[in-house]
Amino acid sequence: MNLTLKIWRQKSPKDKGRLVTYMAKGISPDMSFLEMLDTINRDLILKGDDPVAFEHDCREGICGSCGFMVSGQAHGPLKGTTVCQLHMRHFTDGDTLVLEPWRAKAFPIIKDLVVDRSALDRIIIAGGFVSVDTGSAPEANALLTPKDNAEIAMDAAACIGCGACVASCKNASAMLFVGAKVSQLALLPQGQPERERRALSLVTSMDDAGFGNCTNESECEAACPKEISVRNIARLNREFLRASFSHPAK
């Protein structure tokens, strides 16, 4: 396959950046998208040029490291797939693809297709966890969990924090990410002691980071590689409002 790639090149956070055209020749349909970029980078390095910077780690769709816009769609045209698991057979010989980084005020560009997603980490630090004292593990059957709740919590916990929800949302909102993090713990007994504080802290941290507001378009759900449901956003709204009225802090 031969493809034309228009890739966002930006040397540093302060650089203006621009789309640069590259020709990808002799691409195997069995390659992953990142492997295709690897071949582009090999050629660039051999020519003495700066390779295209993009984030990646597991290349199995589970770590949440990779992600950029492929012709205007987060992680490319396939649903429920990260860009590392997107294969070139889904494109047609002769296609022109535009590769851009996630764009959001809260995700400043570091270089080329790499953005700083530490705003998501700061949201988790604000309370997206369960405080557990060290010691021996408790007896497993001591914590009773309804099966249905465990299933919904597990679906929410599938979020890999890639940032595609923010990237695809026209408002650059992080509500799906925060909704998933609040839901996965609000539905389990382990999450109860910090439930209210967590909902309040995560929303405050999200707002402070400069993410936009949710306008319920569900584009985030459509773009999420883990297909996290927007019902988690409704749950986040409930959790936040409930916590606002009932949390002891004034």
Partner: peptide, 15 residues
């Protein structure tokens, strides 16, 4: 929240 817009944007099905 998005000062710089995408040069290309396509919906994946939500909008």
């Amino acid at each position: 929240a998005r000062p710089e817009v995408y040069s290309m944007y396509a919906s994946k099905g939500g909008r």
